[in-house]
């Protein structure tokens, strides 16, 4: 129990650091909301600019601005978006579901299929399938995700014409019906395929290496000497040991996959946090950018906590070491 409390306190400290760091970083960006508005309206007088800065509290000394922002965040207020004139938290909550749908689906598929590929490949390390996995890993790892996405669009949208080009759902489909859900899945296919391709490559390679390592262990020899069949040896004795590094990487990559999502969402105009982040940067919408950064930091920290829990379920050594 104390371990969990300890981890939670750590997480809060980390979040505070993220907020302060983001604030400092973004305040170093040249130009502010007054410049942006002035630029959009084709110029403004010094008085108007000063007025705008006063409205948004930008005339205050830096440390006061920082303290005000941290205080607001602590109360759950992420500020107002300059562009939408809506609370940032509302903006994020409206966009989080499509992103989670995309990211979680892609990650889960990549882990499951990647591990399966790796396990099959490890059984015959010099077999054709194993070489296929190695090549797949190389291609998947080297190909930029936007390039993969465009190739998929060329194939599925332009040539085969079986997939929609962009968006979350066809706006003419009635919301909440079965057809609507199916249409979302249909739209989800290409973004998920693009995003998971890189990670699938990584996981199959990792699972293959990890399995081969575990299959050489003494306890695998023991399992065989007990009279267990190859299926039990692989799926029961080897796999549970081999997934430990996969869990580690999955936890670490969850943050990574968020940045991949920005690119994929932009390519497919998927209405998630990624497109919001991308557009907010173009619009110079500082509160929105800071809000999104804060939110993704929070997600990463939560996922790390969950990874830690998953470890404790799979590996008894960690369970007792952390309880001690």
């Amino acid at each position: 129990m104390t371990v969990i409390v300890h981890r939670l306190l750590n997480a809060v400290g980390l979040l505070l650091a993220v907020v302060v760091f983001n604030f400092i970083l973004l305040s170093m960006v040249p130009g502010d909301i007054a410049d942006t508005l002035a630029g959009e309206s084709g110029g403004a007088s010094a008085e108007v600019m000063a007025e705008i800065r006063r409205t948004y509290g930008l005339d205050q000394p830096f440390h006061i601005q920082l303290a005000t922002y941290v205080g607001k965040v602590a109360r759950g207020d992420l500020g107002m978006s300059y562009y939408f004139n809506l609370p940032v938290s509302e903006l994020i909550l409206g966009r989080v579901a499509p992103t989670l749908l995309l990211v979680v689906t892609a990650l889960v598929l990549a882990i499951l299929i990647g591990t399966l590929f790796g396990v099959i490949a490890s059984r015959k390390p010099n077999g054709a399938f194993s070489h296929f996995v190695t090549v797949l890993a190389l291609v998947g790892f080297s190909a930029p995700v936007f390039w993969t996405a465009f190739l998929l669009i060329v194939l599925f949208v332009a040539m085969l014409e079986i997939m929609p080009l962009s968006g979350l759902v066809d706006p003419t489909t009635p919301r909440g019906t079965l057809a609507w859900y199916l249409d979302v899945l249909h739209h989800l296919f290409l973004p998920v395929l693009s995003l998971s391709s890189i990670y699938l490559a990584a996981y199959s390679r990792l699972a293959r290496a990890s399995m081969m390592d575990v299959l050489g262990s003494d306890f695998i020899r023991t399992a065989r000497a007990k009279g267990l069949g190859e299926t039990s040896v692989t799926c029961k004795h080897a796999l549970r040991n081999a997934v430990i590094p996969v869990i580690t990487i999955a936890g670490l990559q969850f943050s990574h996959i968020f940045s991949g999502a920005v690119v994929v969402e932009t390519v497919f105009t998927w209405p998630g946090l990624g497109t919001l982040a991308f557009e907010s940067i173009l619009r110079g919408d500082t509160p929105a950018i800071m809000g999104i950064l804060f939110f993704s930091a929070m997600i990463v920290i939560v996922v790390n906590l969950l990874t830690d829990l998953a470890y404790r379920i799979v590996d008894p050594r960690i369970r007792s070491a952390r309880n001690a």
Partner: peptide, 19 residues
């Protein structure tokens, strides 16, 4: 294996499955 002929090994530290 394991029923008529059993085997124990040199490395007790690593011959049991840790999980």
């Amino acid at each position: 294996r394991g029923k008529d002929i059993s085997m124990i090994f040199q490395e007790p530290m690593t011959s049991l499955n840790p999980v």
